Simulated assay, not measured.
Amino acid sequence: MTVTATDLRHLRRAVELARLALERGDEPFGSVLVSGAGRELFEDHNHVVERDETQHPELAIARWAGWHLRPEERAAATVYTSGEHCPMCAAAHGWVGLGRIVYAVSSAQLVTWRTAWGCPPGPVAALPIRQLVPDAVVEGPVPELEAEVKGLHEAFALAPR
């Protein structure tokens, strides 16, 4: 895995967005789209509590990229995200032809944590991105951010509802 200092900076922004989602009462996921030239193009966080269960930031990035970037720009871009794409978001990433994905924590890590906290399983299997998009360039998890992201998810999982 070759996660650079620049990658870490963008991943930290994705984690900040995840924290913002948590502060707004939502599941802590955040993502940033960065051009091949290194310019941040679009960012978002989860909106599943206020809207619907499909309002993931990775899906919003795929939709935005499809409308605003040429195919070669999409292929050169990188998506930085606090958590590995779910199958819905991975499929959108593949269909739109986005480039590299760098995630802080994996779906497998999240499933393990949620199980330990007594959370019910999600409605969709937590599959690795490459199982859905075999040619995807994927890097993660990033150990430097694991404890912070785990803390965000624990706070959401254990919050009274």
Results as ranks from 00 to 15, higher is better:
Ala159Trp: 13
Thr112His: 11
Leu145Cys: 00
Gly118Ala: 03
Ala21Val: 04
Pro87Thr: 01
Ser31Asp: 06
His85Arg: 12
Glu144Trp: 07
Ala159His: 14
Ala157Ile: 07
Ser31Glu: 06
Ala60Arg: 15
Glu23Val: 10
Trp95Glu: 15
Ser35Ile: 04
Leu11Thr: 12
His56Gly: 08
Asp7Phe: 01
His56Arg: 14
Asp44Tyr: 03
Val142Met: 06
Asp44Val: 03
Leu8Gln: 11
Ser35Glu: 07
Pro141Cys: 10
Glu144Cys: 03
Met1Gly: 14
Val96Asn: 11
Gly83Gln: 12
Ala157Lys: 08
Lys150Cys: 00
Leu110Ala: 09
Leu33Asn: 07
Leu22Ala: 05
Glu146Tyr: 11
Arg9Gln: 12
Gly66Tyr: 09
Ala18Pro: 03
Gly118Met: 03
Asn46His: 09
Val102His: 13
Val34Tyr: 10
Arg24Met: 05
Ala159Arg: 15
Glu16His: 14
Gly66Glu: 09
Met88Tyr: 13
Ala76Leu: 05
Arg19Leu: 05
Glu16Ser: 13
Gly140Ser: 04
Pro160Leu: 12
Lys150Thr: 03
Val133Cys: 06
Arg63Trp: 05
Ala14Ser: 15
Ser35Leu: 02
Pro71His: 09
Leu132Asp: 09
Ala136Glu: 00
Glu148Trp: 02
Glu16Met: 10
Ala159Asp: 10
Val48Phe: 06
Ala91Ile: 08
Val142Phe: 06
Thr4Gly: 03
Ala125Lys: 14
Val137Ile: 11
Ala104Cys: 10
His93Tyr: 00
Val137Arg: 15
Val49Glu: 14
Lys150His: 05
Val137Trp: 07
Pro120Leu: 07
Arg70Thr: 10
Glu139Asn: 11
Leu132Gln: 13
Ala155Ser: 04
Val48Cys: 08
Val3Lys: 12
Glu58Pro: 02
Val3Gln: 12
Gln109Asn: 10
Ser106Pro: 05
Pro57Cys: 06
Ala104Val: 00
Leu11Tyr: 07
Val105Asn: 08
Gly140Asp: 00
Thr4Asn: 06
Phe42Ala: 09
Gly94Phe: 00
Arg70Val: 05
Leu158Thr: 15
His93Lys: 05
Arg161Trp: 12
Val138Trp: 08
Glu23Pro: 07
Gln109Thr: 12
Val96Ile: 15
Ala104Arg: 09
Trp64Asp: 02
Gln55Cys: 11
Leu158Phe: 08
Tyr103Leu: 09
Lys150Asp: 02
Arg130Pro: 01
Gly83Lys: 15
Val111Leu: 00
Ala60Glu: 14
Ala126Pro: 02
Val102Asp: 12
Thr4Tyr: 07
Pro28Glu: 01
Leu41Glu: 10
Val79His: 02
Ala159Ser: 13
Val3Leu: 09
Ala5His: 10
Ala5Pro: 02
Leu69Cys: 10
Leu20Arg: 15
Val137Asp: 14
Gln55Glu: 14
Glu40Lys: 13
Ala108Cys: 09
Ala37Tyr: 08
Val15Gly: 04
Ala126Thr: 05
Asn46Lys: 11
Asp44Arg: 13
Val149Gln: 03
Val137His: 14
Ala65Thr: 10
His68Glu: 02
Ala5Gln: 15
Ile129Gly: 02
Ser31His: 07
Ala5Trp: 07
Val15Phe: 04
Trp64Met: 00
Ala126Asp: 12
